[in-house]
Computed example of a mutant assay.
Amino acid sequence: MDESERHRLILDELKERPFATVKDLLDVLKVSPATIRRDIAKLHEIGNVRKVFGGIAAAERDDAPERLAARPFEENRMLAVDAKRAIAREAEALVRDGDAIIIHGGTTCYLFALRLARRNVRIYTNSMPLAARLWEDGSCHLTLGGGELYREPGILYAQASGPPDFFASKLFLGAQGIGPNGIMESHPLIARESERLLSRADELVLLADSRKFAIRTRYTVLPLSRISTLITDDGLSTEHAKMLEDAGIRTIIAKVGTGE
Results as ranks from 00 to 15, higher is better:
58 A>M: 09
174 G>Y: 04
106 G>C: 08
11 L>A: 02
220 T>K: 09
113 A>C: 09
181 N>K: 14
29 L>I: 12
59 A>G: 05
81 V>Y: 04
64 A>D: 09
176 Q>C: 05
1 M>V: 14
55 G>N: 15
125 T>N: 01
110 Y>K: 01
164 P>A: 11
108 T>A: 10
166 F>T: 00
168 A>R: 07
53 F>Y: 15
66 E>T: 12
4 S>K: 13
96 R>V: 02
162 G>V: 08
124 Y>D: 00
132 A>G: 10
180 P>H: 02
154 G>C: 06
223 P>Q: 06
132 A>C: 13
96 R>E: 09
73 F>V: 00
212 K>N: 02
171 L>S: 01
240 H>D: 12
184 M>K: 08
1 M>I: 09
140 C>I: 08
195 E>A: 12
162 G>P: 00
33 P>F: 03
120 N>K: 12
43 L>N: 09
79 L>A: 02
207 L>T: 07
217 T>P: 02
137 D>A: 15
64 A>W: 13
226 R>T: 06
203 E>G: 12
232 T>H: 00
173 L>S: 01
209 D>T: 04
172 F>T: 05
155 I>K: 04
144 L>E: 12
147 G>D: 05
94 L>Q: 09
8 R>C: 04
156 L>V: 06
49 V>L: 13
254 A>V: 03
72 P>I: 05
